Simulated scan of single mutants.
Amino acid sequence: MSADFTPNDPFAMFRQFWQTATPASAQPFLPPMSEEEIDRKLAELRVVEGWLTMNLGMLSMQMKTLEMQRAAIAALKPREDKK
C-alpha cells in the first residue's frame, strides 16, 4: 500500500493518479504504444480470452452434468401419488 492511503480517504489513490497524469495526455489509461507492443498485448489478451472461454465451457458442462443428475434422481424417485 502507498503511504498516502488512509481509510478515511479511499479515493486518495485516484486523486494522486489524476494529479500525476499530464494534461497534454488525452488518454491517461491508454499510453501510446508501438506496433510491437500492441501486437504483444493483443496476443496476451487472446490467450486470456481462450483460457476464460475454456473455463466457461467447463463450468457449463459441469452445470449440465448436475442438471442431468438431478433429473435422473427425480425420475428414479417413487411418486407419492402411486400409493
Rank of each mutant, 00 (worst) to 15 (best):
P28E: 05
M13W: 09
S25G: 08
F14V: 02
E67I: 00
E37P: 02
P23L: 13
S34L: 09
A74L: 09
E37S: 00
S60P: 14
M1Q: 15
N8I: 11
K77Y: 00
L56W: 07
E80D: 08
P28G: 07
A43M: 00
A74P: 05
A74T: 04
A3N: 12
L56I: 05
E36D: 14
A21C: 03
P31A: 02
K64P: 01
Q69D: 08
R40I: 03
G57L: 13
D81K: 07
D81I: 04
L52T: 10
P7I: 05
P32L: 06
F11R: 05
A21T: 01
E49T: 03
E36H: 12
K77C: 02
A74F: 03
R40H: 10
V48E: 11
A74V: 07
F29N: 10
R40M: 02
P7Y: 04
K64R: 12
P31H: 02
N55Q: 13
K41C: 00
L45S: 00
R15P: 00
M33K: 04
K41A: 03
M1G: 14
A72D: 06
F11Y: 15
M63A: 10
G50S: 08
T53Q: 09
Q62C: 13
R46M: 01
M1R: 14
P7H: 07
A43T: 02
L52G: 03
Q27K: 13
F14G: 06
A3G: 12
R46N: 01
D9Y: 10
A72Q: 05
K83A: 04
P32R: 03
D9A: 10
M33W: 01
L56R: 14
M61F: 13
T53L: 07
F11A: 05
N8F: 13
N8A: 13
G57H: 12
I73H: 01
A24H: 11
K64Y: 03
A71V: 00
W51V: 09
Q27T: 12
M33V: 02
A71I: 02
F29W: 13
M54E: 15
P28W: 03
M54R: 15
M13A: 06
Q19M: 09
A21Y: 01
A26F: 02
A75G: 06
D81V: 03
S25T: 08
S60M: 14
E44S: 04
Q16D: 14
R79I: 01
L30T: 10
P7M: 07
K64F: 01
A72P: 01
L45C: 00
T20R: 13
E35G: 06
E36Y: 15
P10G: 00
F29D: 11
L45M: 01
M63T: 07
P28R: 05
A26S: 09
T22Q: 15
L30Y: 10
R79S: 04
S34I: 06
L59N: 12
